[in-house]
Every structure is written in structure tokens, then in C-alpha cells.
Design a protein around this nucleic acid. Structure first.
Lengths: 244, 244
DNA sequence: AATGATCGTCGAACGATGTTCGCTAATGGC
DNA sequence: GCCATTAGCGAACATCGTTCGACGATCATT
């Protein structure tokens, strides 16, 4: 049709007969299906493997087909994240069984656990203002819990940001760490290497690092997370006064 | 290649005739020069613009030339980050002029300010264990300050992680925010939009978000940062007991 | 039933990225 | 003065996200 008389790639109409794969055109593609496939890729191979081509391949098609349902990778990532946030189990009502500190800590643990189940997805979620349906439900619950506990409104407002930033930062680090150190032996070796490095620093220049090489490398990820939770919760409780 | 055989860039004469052994040729390219150029690109156009080609262009050469001095982009980023961390002014000695809480807060403000002067560089620095010379000096100082204040060793050890994670997370967010909202009017518009969004949510489902739409969108970045600092410092002070 | 329009599908291609590969040429030890 | 060593550097490779345009199935209308 154009100027070239020899098409570089001749069409092969018989290469894919209609009856070979699926008879009628199946509408397998949808935002839901794409998000599911994308999350499956993340779970299986990590966030970096979640390319448009790889997600499309998971669906048995090409990358271009995804753009009919999703604006781009950015939107797809957001879709996946909101789906994962939805996995966090949020109580329907605000219970008065425990003090707000315990309720908040339980929720934070649940969020961390959910992201820990999805490789390094938290890396994409960090520093993104979560405004999806599921994120809003979570924020609503946390605000309600703290207000019921008597925390001043402005403290509650700031605390929502602070707490979510903390849990996402930890989840981020969890993901990075798990991406390079999988087995317990590997983790132990890494910690030992780090401790040895600190202990071997010149004591006249870094006396405190050398002295605290043990405590600095002590504790599991869980223990460090719990420490941070406790610090935040106690600090927030101490902000009940006038300043903030 | 061009037809002319004139060298496009005249070479600078070498300056040092003798090295320890077969000295590596002294040219215009060096790790220092590359790091300087890379930081210049980040400052001028942001982290995403810091590509190997762009940095090389800044030096009047091609991307391949950088790999003789730098293992890859990863190492280059680390070089730039440690240089920036070195910009943070750390007191030579630990002063006893103020309580440790104030000292720590001052240091955290300084770190945030330095990264704020380098666009969104903090995005690359986050969740990276800083082990460069400059980072170690900073950690040493912070540990010394808190120990002098009577904070238990294990609390100090965990606190170093927690505090640095907080300040880097905030710097990260600062960078992202500044990348899309530059003018004060733009910031105000964004905050107003966010407040309007929250206030317009269905009140029967999100009563607390609707009620706190004002406080949730109140405060500047500085005020939110100060709030977090205060929470952390008070929380840490409350961890002086036996548990952790 | 036939038909034209609509819209999802998808191979190919575009521009940009990090990195590698050889060739060139300058340099320092002999 | 010669030659092996090695930094410099253009070109190319493998990916990436994204766009383009033809193809074809589906459906409302005739």
C-alpha cells in the first residue's frame, strides 16, 4: 500500500486460527483482572518484575492491550496498592475493649503483616497519599479510635500521617531487606557482618558506635518495629497538652 | 563519527608526572568530578534527570566513560548521597548546653534542611543503610548525645534507626511534594483541594474524616515535622524504664 | 439478514534508560 | 624511541513505558 513493494513481515492469517485458542472472543481483560495479574507477578517475582509486558504476558496478551483499561503503570500500581490495603482487616465498629494505644498498635501490626505478604510492594506505596476506598476506611477507623481515647483533634490529625508514614517506612525496609536476605542463616550472617564492621571501627574516632556495636545490631525486625510503635504511642499520649 | 579529524575537545595536559606506581592517568574525569557533576544535575533538574548520559554530558563526554571510575549508577548515587550527608554540620564535640532532646531535634532539623536543598535526592537515600564516613560521624554524635543524656543503651541503639528513618522519610516526602508543588499559591490550592475532598466525603460512612477535614489538612510541612520530632523525643524519653 | 460503526485487541515501533563491547590514542616504563 | 597498558568514547544491546494504526468482533440500525 505504501511505497515499499516488499512488506518486511508478511502476514500469516493462518498462523492463528480462531478455533485454536478460544473460539469466541472472550472478554478476559478488565481492570480487575489486570490488577489481579499484576499482584500475582509482584507476589511471585517482586515489584521490579511488575512490568507492563510481564503483566500482559500473565494474561496471555501484549502490553498495549492493558492501556485500554489502565491509564498507565502509575494507575496500575495504585490499583494494586489499594487492593492490598483492602486486605487489612479493619473492625467494623470501634470497640472500647482496650485503650486506644493497644488498638492502634494492633492495626499497625496488621498493616505491616499484610505488606510483608506482598514482597517489596510497600516500596511503591510509600510516600503516596492513600486516598482509595480502603485507605479511607482505615483512616476513618484510626481517627475514630484515637478520638474515642480522648486524643485532641489536631494531635489525631497529625498522628494519622505520622503513624502511616512509620508503618509504611518499616514495610518499605522490610521489603528491601527480605529481597536480599531470605534465609535465617543469611540474616544472621548479615547482622554479624554489620556488628563486626562497627566493632572494628577506630575506637578513638567512633567510641560510642564501637561500644554499642552489640545493641546497635540487636533485635529482630519485629522487635525494632515494636519499639518504634511504643515510642510513637507514648509520645502521642504525651501530646495531650496545649502544644503540638 | 564526523569527517573532520580535529579533536572536538582539547585535552588538558597532565599535571602529575609521578605516582606511587604505574599511576592511573590523571584526566579530567575522576570519582570526585563525576559526583560533583551528578549532584549538579540533581540540583538543577531533579533526581530523575540524573541519568548516566546526562551526568556524562555535564562533563562533556559520553556515558561509557563514567564506568571507568564508577561501578554503576548505584555506586554513583551512593557517592552523591554521602557527599550531601557531609554537608550536615555536626558539632565536633558533644556539648552539655542543652538537654539531649533539644540537641537531637536540632540535628534532625539540620539533616532535613540539607536534603531540602537538593531537590528530591532523599528519595534515593531512603531505606539505604548509611555507612559512609560522614554518616558514621553523624551517628556517633547522636549516640554520644543521647548517652550523655542518660538514655539506656538499647534505647539509644534503636532510637538511631528510628530517628534517621523518620527524618529521611520526611525528606523523601518533602522532595516529592516540592517536585509537583512549587509556588505557595500552588501549595495552598492543593491543600484546599484535599480539604474539600475530605469534607465532601459521605458523612455517614466517614464521619470522623469529614469532621476533621480542617485539622487533617492544617499545618505546614515544618509544623508537621516538628510535631513528629516532639512525639519521638517524648516517646523516647518515656522509654527509660525496663521494657523496650 | 445485511451493514456500518464502534471499540477492544495487539504487533510493531519509538524514545529513553543502564550497561557492555571494542576500537582509539595517549602515556609512562623500558 | 618503542610498546604494552589503559582511560576515553561511540555504537550497540537489552529493557522499559508508551503510542500508533490496522484488524476484527460485536451490536444497533436498517
Amino acid at each position: 500500500m505504501a511505497s515499499a513493494e516488499l512488506p518486511p513481515v508478511p502476514r500469516l492469517p493462518s498462523r492463528r486460527p480462531a478455533a485454536s485458542r478460544r473460539g469466541p472472543r472472550e472478554r478476559t481483560l478488565s481492570r480487575e483482572a489486570i490488577a489481579t495479574a499484576a499482584l500475582a507477578v509482584v507476589d511471585a517475582e517482586g515489584l521490579d518484575a511488575m512490568t507492563m509486558r510481564r503483566v500482559a504476558e500473565e494474561l496471555g496478551t501484549g502490553a498495549a492491550s492493558l492501556y485500554a483499561h489502565v491509564a498507565g503503570k502509575e494507575e496500575l500500581v495504585e490499583l494494586v496498592i489499594d487492593r492490598v490495603i483492602g486486605e487489612v482487616e479493619i473492625p467494623e465498629t470501634v470497640s472500647a475493649q482496650q485503650p486506644w494505644q493497644e488498638e492502634v498498635k494492633m492495626a499497625m501490626r496488621a498493616i505491616r503483616a499484610v505488606f510483608a505478604g506482598h514482597r517489596d510492594l510497600a516500596r511503591a506505596s510509600f510516600a503516596r497519599i492513600p486516598m482509595g476506598e480502603n485507605a479511607l476506611r482505615g483512616s476513618e477507623w484510626m481517627i475514630a479510635t484515637m478520638r474515642r481515647g480522648g486524643v485532641p483533634d489536631q494531635v489525631v490529625a497529625y498522628a494519622v500521617d505520622l503513624l502511616s508514614a512509620y508503618v509504611m517506612a518499616i514495610a518499605y525496609e522490610d521489603g528491601l531487606f527480605a529481597a536480599e536476605h531470605t534465609t535465617p542463616a543469611d540474616i544472621e550472617a548479615f547482622v554479624a557482618e554489620m556488628r563486626g564492621f562497627m566493632a572494628a571501627l577506630p575506637a578513638e574516632r567512633f567510641p560510642n558506635i564501637v561500644a554499642l556495636a552489640g545493641p546497635l545490631t540487636a533485635g529482630t525486625g519485629d522487635e525494632r518495629f515494636e519499639f518504634g510503635l511504643e515510642v510513637l504511642v507514648r509520645g502521642l499520649a504525651a501530646m495531650g497538652g496545649a502544644d503540638g
